[in-house]
């Protein structure tokens, strides 16, 4: 293992019945980078995230996080180790307030989760931290709203906020802009940019919107039918003919 990589997958295989969703995927991510994974629908991007984040275990190959084999670890363990993910389909606590959503994420980083007889509000630093996060993601003033009543764009922001609140080293963001209107995208991008500027944070992004990917990525992997067909800097990728054929339909 090369310790210069915060994340490395080696020959990763994943099958669903007869379908091979991932085929010998080798992927390396350097610390402090923003790496994007692109590919047409059904290419295996979300499966890749599910395997890396511990939702599924790989059928072959391994995943290394900071040099440690994490292929068999649970998602809760990985989250504690500093690897957190967001979901393409919004996955928040619908019936809790925005503040409580974020507070729960903050609490998981504290040491009070087994305190059974103290009031949860007496840990005021968690609440402060939660409201700080809601400022960062632009949900200020909506802290007391029940999450399911938020408009879609705000739910996507909260989804991202839950990951930020965990203060992970490595963030896996699964289409953070999916379903957002054009006006809503810049504010999410701004948050992602700000995370990127923090040298201690590494991001892996699955995204469909090519203009965004080309603009903010340091490095890009192209996944097609579970196989990596190309990798490189944004410029190389946009000029790669194979990629254009598979994914961009022959033209950019």
């Amino acid at each position: 293992m090369n310790s210069e990589y915060i994340l490395e997958t080696r020959q990763l295989d994943k099958y669903f019945g007869g379908l091979q969703a991932l085929n010998k995927v080798d992927l390396t991510v350097k610390s402090g980078q923003l790496v994007s994974v692109i590919g047409p629908n059904g290419a295996g991007k979300t499966t890749l995230f599910n395997v890396i984040s511990g939702n599924f275990h790989p059928d072959g190959g391994s995943v290394y996080f900071n040099g440690k084999d994490i292929s068999r670890l649970s998602s809760s363990r990985l989250s504690q180790m500093g690897l957190a993910r967001s979901f393409q389909i919004t996955n928040i606590f619908d019936n809790l307030t925005v503040e409580e959503n974020l507070r729960l994420a903050v609490q998981s980083r504290g040491a009070s989760s087994f305190k059974m007889l103290t009031h949860y509000l007496s840990y005021s630093d968690y609440i402060d931290k939660a409201s700080e996060i809601s400022r960062v993601i632009g949900l200020e003033g909506k802290e007391k709203m029940i999450a399911k009543f938020l408009p879609h764009g705000d739910k996507r922001k909260l989804e991202l906020g839950l990951v930020l609140a965990l203060e992970p080293e490595l963030l896996l963001l699964d289409e953070p802009t999916s379903g957002l209107s054009i006006e809503e995208i810049p504010s999410i991008l701004e948050v992602i940019q700000r995370v990127k500027e923090d040298k201690n944070k590494t991001l892996i992004l699955v995204e469909h919107k090519m203009d965004i990917v080309m603009k903010i990525s340091d490095y890009i992997y192209v996944l097609h039918h579970g196989t990596i067909i190309a990798e490189g800097a944004p410029l190389e990728i946009s000029e790669n003919e194979q990629v254009q054929e598979a994914y961009l339909g022959g033209a950019v």
Binding site: L104, S113, Y120
Partner: peptide, 22 residues
């Protein structure tokens, strides 16, 4: 109303996400 109790409600609401919160 304890931190532990809040986690229980989180589990009821969304077990998968609770796991991903660590």
């Amino acid at each position: 109303n304890s931190p532990t109790g809040r986690i229980l409600e989180a589990i009821r609401e969304n077990e998968e996400r609770t796991r991903h919160l660590g």
